[in-house]
Structure formats: structure tokens, C-alpha cells
Computed example of a mutant assay.
Amino acid sequence: MDVPELLEAASLLVPEKIATENDITVNDVWEYLAHDEWEVALSLLEELGDVHRLPLGLWEALATAAEQMRLEKSAAWCHWRSYETRHGIIRADLTLRPAAEARRRTPISGAGVLRPMWNIGHRTATGEPALDIARLWVELTPLLEPGGRATVRLAPLDPSQWQHLRPGQVITMHEDRSVAATAVVLEVQQPPAISTATPGSSGRP
């Protein structure tokens, strides 16, 4: 499929009744598609996906469309949301240690590139912390400076190891054995049943 076909098919998976805080609905998406405003249509579909759980097929279609338009950040975000649709959502309030107190001296990328280790309560047979890997997405900012604080999303390498997390739980981030950041879990959502609706079908969630 080319970009307009992907976006049109994705739009069919969005219920007409849902709206963003700015009262954007899928009907607005269709208006932009009619005028070949593909990048705007993609952005609006991403926004609609943030206010309502939408099928996996939508995010996969948007990721492909974004890649064809060479919109790297949008493609990365849509792939991230595809992962969350499959495996669930983990959000946390993260505070990086200041540069004077930690190994890291430079900002971290916010776009899901960093794959740090996390102490989420697991132990080795000898009682030492057993660290688990999860990619990190920082909300609303492309970079997080040392000492900075932000809401983040986590994508575990092995989601089954993270199912015990609960809001309010404190976990720590590590880039080596020392603590690089502390995070308080804000939200844990288990994955919904993955919809079989795919772009080009007439199914709706």
C-alpha cells in the first residue's frame, strides 16, 4: 500500500465517536486526506490513538506510512505503540541523577533508543539484584538532561518479568552497577486482546 491507502485504511479502524481534547475526530482526518495533507492526517491519527485504545493494525499501518514519508520520529512512536498494544503500557516518573553524582554527563535521547537496565525487585540465587532490560521513551521532550525529571514509558525486553509492577512502586535505572535514575511507577496497563482488524478490513474496535 502507498501512503494515502495506508492512512485511509487506518482511519477505518477509528470509531467516529472518539475525540481528542481539541475535539478532533476521524472526520477531521478524512478532510485532510481529501486534500492530500498526509502528514497532518498521520499526526491526528496518532493523537486519536492516545485517547482511545485502537487496534494493532492501525499502529502498524501508521508506522509504515511514516516510514514511507521518512518521518523517523513518527515511525518510531508508532512502532512503540504497536509494542504497547501487544505487551501493555508502563509509565513512570523518572528523575536522573545529576552529572556530578553519576556516570552519565550527557542528555539521554527521548525517542526509545536507550536500553538501560532496571532494578524492579528481582534477585539472583545469591541475593544480589538481578537487573532487567527495558527501552526508555521520554514523553514530551527529545532529550532529558542529567538531573532532569520527566514522565517516561518503558518497553521491557521480557514483558513477563514486569507483570508484578504496581503504581507507586519505586524502581531504579542503571547504565552500569550504579544507580543512574530513580523512577516511581505511575501506570501499568495489561495488554488488551489484540484485535484481528487489519488495514483494508471493515472491522472496528
Rank of each mutant, 00 (worst) to 15 (best):
T64D: 15
L165V: 06
W59A: 05
G200L: 08
T85D: 15
V170E: 13
A193C: 03
V185H: 02
E8C: 04
E128W: 08
A197Y: 11
E139V: 11
L71G: 03
P107F: 03
T141N: 08
L7N: 06
I24C: 02
T64C: 05
M1P: 13
L6F: 10
S201Q: 07
S202D: 14
P205Q: 06
T198E: 12
L96F: 09
V185E: 05
D93C: 06
R103K: 11
A19T: 09
Q68I: 07
G147A: 09
V113K: 13
S201G: 13
W38V: 01
P205G: 10
H122T: 02
H174Q: 04
I120F: 02
R104L: 15
D28V: 01
S202R: 14
A65Q: 06
E128P: 02
H87L: 01
T182H: 08
A155I: 00
T196I: 13
Q169R: 10
R105S: 11
W137Q: 07
T198N: 06
R104F: 04
E31W: 07
L56Y: 10
E31G: 06
L56S: 07
L186M: 12
E21P: 00
A100Q: 13
R166Y: 01
M1D: 11
N119K: 02
L54F: 08
V188C: 09
P55Y: 02
L58G: 06
A76G: 05
L131W: 02
G200H: 08
E37R: 09
A100M: 10
D132I: 04
T20S: 13
L94V: 05
E39M: 08
W38Y: 14
S178D: 14
I108R: 00
T25G: 13
D93T: 05
P4N: 01
T124W: 06
L186T: 03
E31T: 13
A125W: 07
W30M: 14
V3G: 03
A63Y: 01
R204T: 11
R103E: 10
G110H: 08
V179F: 04
E67A: 15
R153D: 00
L144N: 10
A193H: 08
R105G: 06
E84Q: 14
E139F: 14
A181D: 09
L186V: 03
E84W: 03
E101K: 12
K17Y: 15
A125E: 12
I194M: 12
L154S: 04
L13P: 03
G112P: 04
E60Y: 00
R81Q: 14
D158A: 15
E8T: 13
S43F: 06
T85A: 14
A34Y: 02
L140E: 14
T198W: 10
L186D: 12
D176P: 00
H87Q: 11
R177T: 08
R177Q: 13
V40W: 04
E187G: 02
P142N: 07
M173I: 01
R204S: 09
L94C: 04
A155Y: 01
S160C: 04
